[in-house]
Design a protein around this nucleic acid. Structure first.
Lengths: 200, 200
DNA sequence: GTCTATATTGTGATAGAC
DNA sequence: GTCTATCACAATATAGAC
């Protein structure tokens, strides 16, 4: 998926920005063209339809974090060794593109039937992952917790603050985005500590 | 906000359903009217505009969980006493209307400027809440964590699994919604245990 | 590849009959 | 309160000139 022409790059950049912000139905082809500073019909020339342009943006967004998840689910290494790396990777991804989680979750929520197909395309076999995860010692017993709950907790702690950024930064950090970002940086150390504490 | 006529109830029910699922821009007035089985112009008769209909639905959604948050932030009681109740209340709310979190987060994410005003209307004073929270002993020291991080962790653990339900149920529970719901029930006990463990 | 012009359909909203 | 008819406009998409 290399973007050849300069125009094509401008289109994808603007489409990403506006789709992330307003959703698929929330912005028009005209909006995207205006943001990119090009003629509207060029969008159709390059991507044929709004649906296909959205598809390109959505798949790129999925591709930015599914591999992380997949790697963790598929790996044979002990769980703890992954936590620090995973947390850092995921949080860094969110810091770079803070709007990805809400964008992806909204699309999947209004179209949940897409999930199985996407998982398949991205090389994640859910039932295989679960099997591996529940193998003895793969994800260590923590307070008698199901291993899936451990994974879910980890993901919740990493992703939710970004999905809820508007609320969180307003209610907890009085609207100060700098302080919010510092807090997110802090969580890179904090979350692994929590996991370690729970594992004890 | 009592809904008088039968028609009005049908409208709100359908608007809720479709706005939750597809977002404000993702469904038309015609869609809502069709779902409610009534004439499209009645929507304008009762709510004047799409904006005002959306506002009614959005405010109702906010009202279903902001009071819980506000109560916790404002209360003088020790933090631990609230955790069990709060977790149960929040998870029960999510179980009843699983689409609320993603709906609210999406709207606030594309329109973050609304947050301060909404907080004010709902009687939550952020800076006051923070002040109270950081008072000695209000939210207990946990692993040297900032009290705001504790709150954020708690909310993340409760809400994220529902916001990400499509992904979670597919990847971790192989698409089985029954098993997913059981896991969410289990979290009512599990999350307070985690909090307790971290507080030690 | 990029533009203008245009076809076609959908949308929110209102006026006015019943 | 509920309907039909209608308005003004915005949307996606394509055809065809350059």
């Amino acid at each position: 998926m290399t973007l050849n022409t300069e125009t094509e790059q401008k289109i994808i950049a603007s489409a990403e920005k506006l789709f992330y912000q307003k959703g698929k139905a929330g912005c028009s082809m005209q909006d995207i063209a205006d943001d990119a500073g090009i003629n509207r019909t060029l969008l159709n020339y390059y991507y044929r339809s709004k649906d296909q342009l959205f598809e390109a943006v959505f798949r790129q967004a999925m591709g930015s974090f599914v591999p992380n998840l997949a790697a963790m689910l598929k790996s044979d290494m002990p769980f703890q060794d992954y936590v620090q790396d995973l947390v850092e990777t995921v949080i860094d991804t969110m810091l770079e593109s803070p709007q990805i989680p809400i964008f992806v979750l909204q699309e999947l929520s209004s179209n949940p039937a897409r999930m199985p197909q996407i998982m398949k395309e991205m090389g994640v076999d859910p039932s295989l992952a679960i099997e591996k995860m529940t193998e003895e010692g793969r994800v260590p017993e923590a307070m008698g917790m199901d291993p899936r709950q451990v994974i879910l907790n980890l993901m919740s702690l990493c992703i939710f603050p970004f999905a809820a950024r508007a609320v969180v930064s307003e209610v907890l950090y009085d609207g100060d985005q700098e302080v919010f970002l510092e807090a997110m940086e802090e969580r890179k150390k904090l979350i692994p500590q929590i996991v370690k504490q729970i594992m004890k």
